[in-house]
């Protein structure tokens, strides 16, 4: 179970106190009524879904109730930092990224020969 630091409570608290709230740093356009379909699609539907470093929103629902942002490696599940809503997207140092990286995978096994394609079989 994840241990998440609430930047408002300044405490590491267990995951069950929190709710995830999707990708962070997506601001609602001030002129939302006037934006194009493409802009609305970009704002509302399109998400990066990064494998690796993600900037995401959490709410300390069963604690202080505040929304905040977090940087996490989605492979290792390790948090790099959490910070208050409204604070700028942080620049990450190499050390921070490295510290949250998953351990390297074991050398990949030799792949079996790919089976012949349907077209080849048809011949």
């Amino acid at each position: 179970m994840l241990l998440i630091q609430c930047p408002y409570c300044q405490e590491d608290r267990p995951e069950i106190e929190f709710q995830g709230a999707g990708e962070a740093h997506i601001a609602r356009p001030a002129n939302i009524a006037d934006i194009s379909d493409a802009e609305f699609s970009e704002y509302f539907f399109i998400r990066d879904n990064t494998k690796g470093i993600v900037f995401e929103r959490w709410r300390h629902t069963h604690g202080c109730g505040r929304f905040f942002n977090a940087v996490r490696n989605s492979i290792s599940d390790k948090f790099i930092m959490t910070y208050k809503a409204g604070e700028p997207k942080p620049e990450l140092t190499e050390e921070q990224i490295k510290a949250a990286a998953p351990i390297s995978k074991k050398p990949a096994a030799d792949k079996p020969e790919p089976s012949p394609s349907k077209a080849e079989k048809a011949k």
Binding site: Q19, A21, R59, T61, F67
Partner: peptide, 11 residues
Amino acid sequence: LNHMEDYLQTE
């Protein structure tokens, strides 16, 4: 309430 808090706190 969560929906309202979201807009109030973050937007």
